[in-house]
Simulated scan of single mutants.
Amino acid sequence: MTSKTPQQEVSAAEEHAEMMQRMQADLIDSYDEELEMEIDDRAFDEGGGVFSAEQRAQRRAYFKELFRLQGELVKLQDWVVATKHKAVIIFEGRDAAGKGGVIKRITQRLNPRVCRVAALPAPNDRERTQWYFQRYISHLPAGGEIVLFDRSWYNRAGVERVMGFCSDEEYEEFFRSVPEFEKMLVRAGIQVIKYWFSITDEEQHTRFLGRIHDPLKQWKLSPMDLESRRRWEDYTKVKETMMERTHIEEAPWWVVQAVDKKKARLNCMAHLLAQMPYHEVEHAPVTLPPRERRDDYARQPVPPEMVVPEIY
């Protein structure tokens, strides 16, 4: 075994330092938007930390555009309710591709009764004996609702195929059925929008390492995720087959370039807004009525043992 030259050791150290910096930036990026903004304002504007002056300016521009798009999503929500529109939005992609991050930003300012997320677990024993699409049916939207599927019926074309959870016959039947299933949804007045979040081999590797080293994100790594990392090429093959056989005019696939998570969020949100002919809905002015006060009312004291301790 040959030892490394001093130049190789320096190069390895620089590569490690760069990797740690990217992991630290990714950790900060994973926190809540308001917290991110506070960190930006206080820590990174003091001249130190992870980001350069140019990167801090880019982050401020990102937040400005994010909040603008979220404002437009609120208008879209009002239009969906007013017109009784129905929409299903499917988010697919490799593990750590950023699906959950964009879903969180889309739903963050919206009414969960109007825009809700369906993230189904693995099917139980009973569900495995049902018609494959049956367990998804109850999550479909009624009039005035948007449903975001964090993974969907396309599990059969991805993880189930790669991991051997379905037979060849079930796999082929899926491809025969899914175009007709989605066309049926569209005929029933449900708009179907499908996004695939695309990342590189290197970027997934970096994000997985970030999850391993971040105690707040380790829960995201399951044995299935680790196995998917090993089977990168198998997932590539089934993804290509899936898109070739399910990219239909009524419900086409849209690919989001997701190596840069912030750009991916903004691009996906902007594209989603362009898929519906929404407009701002006029609302009657809201006036706060005066509170009624009665002479015979007296507020009862709360027993001290019921009060949550004020430790902050």
Rank of each mutant, 00 (worst) to 15 (best):
E172N: 13
L69V: 07
A188T: 00
R245D: 06
L110R: 06
E65C: 10
Q204F: 00
K84V: 00
E203L: 02
S30G: 03
T2R: 15
F44A: 02
S138K: 15
K84Y: 00
A82E: 12
R161H: 03
G158R: 10
R59E: 11
E34P: 03
L140H: 05
Y171F: 15
R60E: 13
A61E: 12
Q8I: 02
H85K: 11
A298S: 12
F208C: 01
I106Q: 08
V281W: 02
K239Y: 01
L66M: 05
L266R: 06
M1K: 13
S11Y: 06
Q58M: 08
G93E: 05
H279M: 03
H279V: 01
G158K: 06
E280Q: 14
L110N: 11
E92T: 02
L266T: 05
I146R: 08
L76S: 07
E282P: 00
A274R: 15
V255H: 08
D150Q: 07
H213E: 07
E310V: 05
A119I: 01
E65N: 09
S228P: 05
L120N: 07
W79E: 14
I106W: 09
E172Y: 04
A122P: 06
G189Y: 08
A119C: 03
Q257N: 12
Q77E: 15
A82F: 10
L120F: 09
Y31N: 12
D168N: 14
I103N: 04
M1I: 08
T246Y: 03
H279E: 13
L35E: 04
A270E: 14
R187V: 06
A82C: 10
K237Q: 14
E72I: 00
R56E: 07
V302D: 05
N155H: 10
C268Q: 14
S167L: 02
F149G: 04
E250Q: 14
Q77Y: 03
L221Q: 02
